[in-house]
Design a protein around this nucleic acid. Structure first.
Length: 598
RNA sequence: GCGCCCGUAGCUCAGUGGACAGAGCGCUGCCCUGCGGAGGCAGAGGCCGCAGGUUCAAAUCCUGCCGGGCGCACCA
């Protein structure tokens, strides 16, 4: 709000001075108090065009802004070589809080921070997309949470969102899975069994084998490998859904909207794609983007500037994974999404670029595909996760099956959560609370780093129930507000609500800590828009941490509930309420459980 | 060898064109009995990997180099 306010004033001033429309310039929240509340470099941007020195332009602008009617500014100053610094009247800042509170009470469908940018548009987010060969691990966890929060941010912006999980239950890896389970089952029966050379060694394979034995006895001794494969797939998939449900705080069967089976792209699955892999191959040939060599079919990636051509159909006649990927993404475009977001781990970097290149080629060259726009696809590549414990990196190897699963992680964190007496809430069992706290830590830790950067998951820090742990630091701000709220009613026993707009005088909020908090509240919509635009949920955790910091700062210096100063108390309670509205939004968007007591 | 990401305080990381580079932890010193002490204040600590370039202005953009991660299969 404050930014728009200044923007409007600035536009008026530029017109009044008969200055041209400036090229891209910045209007930012100032980092230092001596630079005012906001500052702009517009004078620099205009200098060349206007043929004047930035400093001189800035002075003219400042003068104009100072004298404009209804000026919202306390002061407009020129600094440095030509920055214009704005200091707003306190009443402008108080209005921000007033509007946040008023909307909350007067607009039934309004949530502060909501945006209409995606109104009427459909978005699809594809993430996790793990094949059902084993439980979800740490790497999947980061991706799952990133995808979940990006989906929530999209919904907040008005998009209709489809969460989609793509998987492949055919091919070599699944065959190996079936063989591994079969071998373990035969071992359970005490029969000779040959464990496949590159089979799956995880303990979960033995568990599945034992379960089959418990249900079937030795009836499956002569069964086909496929039977074991199908059984294992169902078991593993159920486990994956359970894990996702825990992470997303949703029932397991609502973790995703669509599970898209790769087999559909061969015409053998539940979905009906726009084009099967065979048709895609034909189209690529028709567009001169595919050719035969050494008995295989190659995609001419070099035509799009990629480093090398790639095989898309093996000599054996079996497509490589790139071909169904192309078919899948073409199908996404055909399904009419306005925005398509793919989330992949760093190991996919090379391959998605080939897929995008193929899509561009197809849409340009095949008449019936001209209507589709590959530019609607955005790809978020995230770096890997390492786990540290006791300052040491935990070594993981998929082959030896000594990797850490998401369930292990949540379980271990939950086991260490200490609940205070007062933490108990009637609505939740201690187990549910422990689970909620553990999931909070996992979610927050996966979110708090830039997806571009490697993420070091510090187990000891995640377990800590003290302010060194950022997730506790943030939750603690919220619970402190709840504690003050309770205190308010014990002191002002005659009141039954701390919202009393009639008695509220926000102009009593003059302390720098109070004004800083309101200005932080004002930034929420921009932060959410930026986080979505850049696909960087860590901007939201950063913001939440900063808000918590400002609040703790305020709390240390100022007493809220004060029987001798009821007016100030009411004003500060209003401020706290505004802060808690924003925390509520943040907890919702980050998918965190907001405890009233800790 | 080629491609992508990263390199900022002792550690973990913010900051991606602006004004003296920030936080948390750790370290040093001081203070505090609370609207929940799961505290508070202060301080030390940085040629923002290196070298060029673009710009009025570079941690931020470009080029090269060095270091780390991940890819580079007719595996997914």
């Amino acid at each position: 709000m404050l930014k728009e306010l200044v923007e409007t004033q600035l536009q008026r001033a530029l017109e009044a001075l008969d200055l041209p429309e400036p090229p891209a310039y910045q209007l930012k929240r100032s980092e230092r108090p001596e630079h005012g509340d906001l500052s702009t470099n517009v004078a620099f941007a205009l200098a060349k065009q206007a043929g004047q020195a930035p400093r001189r332009l800035a002075e003219q602008l400042a003068e104009q802004l100072r004298t404009q009617s209804d000026s919202p500014f306390e002061s407009v100053a020129v600094a440095g070589a030509g920055f214009v610094n704005f200091k707003l009247k306190h009443e402008q800042i108080h209005q921000v809080l007033d509007r946040i509170l008023r909307y909350q009470f007067e607009e039934p469908d309004y949530y502060y921070g909501i945006s209409h940018q995606g109104e009427g548009k459909a978005a699809q987010v594809e993430f996790v997309s793990a094949n059902p060969t084993g439980p979800l691990t740490l790497g999947h966890g980061r991706q799952a949470i990133l995808g979940d929060v990006i989906a929530r941010l999209l919904e907040n912006a008005g998009y209709r969102v489809t969460r989609e999980f793509y998987y492949n239950n055919a091919g070599r890896q699944m065959r190996l899975l079936g063989q591994s389970v079969q071998a373990r089952y035969l071992e359970e029966l005490g029969r000779p069994a040959q464990f496949p050379e590159e089979g799956y060694h995880g303990e979960y394979i033995r568990e599945i084998a034992r379960k089959i034995r418990a249900e079937q006895g030795d009836a499956w001794a002569e069964a086909a490998t496929d039977q074991f494969k199908d059984y294992a797939e169902a078991e593993i998939f159920a486990g994956i859904r359970r894990t996702l449900g825990r992470l997303f705080r949703r029932p397991a069967d609502q973790a995703f909207d669509i599970y898209y089976n790769e087999s559909s792209l061969y015409g053998r699955g539940p979905q009906r794609p726009l084009a099967t892999v065979d048709l895609i191959t034909e189209w690529l040939r028709a567009a001169s983007l595919a050719y035969d060599k050494d008995g295989a079919v190659w995609f001419k990636a070099t035509a799009s500037g990629r480093p090398e051509d790639r095989v898309i159909v093996r000599r054996s006649g079996e497509p490589t994974y790139r071909l169904p990927d192309i078919a899948y993404h073409l199908d996404k475009l055909a399904r009419g999404f306005d925005l398509i977001i793919d989330i992949f781990g760093a190991d996919h970097h090379d391959t998605y670029q080939d897929v995008l290149a193929a899509l561009k080629g197809l849409c340009q060259n095949i008449p019936e595909l001209k209507q589709y726009e590959p530019e609607r696809i955005r790809v978020l590549i995230h770096q890997f996760v390492t786990l540290t414990r006791g300052g040491q990196q935990v070594k993981m190897s998929k082959r030896l099956a000594n990797y850490v699963t998401i369930d292990d992680l949540i379980d271990e964190l939950a086991a260490t959560v200490k609940l205070e007496e007062q933490t108990q809430e009637a609505a939740r069992t201690p187990e549910q609370l422990r689970e909620a706290f553990a999931v909070n830590a996992v979610r927050y830790f996966f979110l708090m780093r830039n997806p571009d950067s490697h993420l070091q998951f510090d187990f000891d820090l995640a377990k800590a129930q003290s302010k060194e742990n950022p997730v506790y630091y943030v939750m603690y701000a919220h619970t402190r507000i709840a504690a003050i709220n309770a205190e308010y009613f014990t002191v002002f026993t005659e009141r039954n609500t701390y919202r009393d707009p009639a008695a509220e005088d926000l102009s009593l909020l003059q302390q720098p800590e109070e004004l800083a908090l309101i200005k932080q509240l004002d930034a929420l919509p921009e932060v959410l828009a930026e986080a979505l635009d850049q696909l960087r949920p860590n901007l939201v955790t950063n913001y939440a941490f900063e808000l918590a910091r400002l609040f703790h700062d305020f709390y240390e210096q100022h007493r809220v509930v004060d029987a001798s100063r009821p007016e100030l108390t009411v004003a500060r309670m209003a401020l706290l309420h505004g802060i808690d509205i924003v925390f509520g939004r943040l907890f919702g968007l980050l998918g965190l459980f907001a405890p009233r007591y800790m």
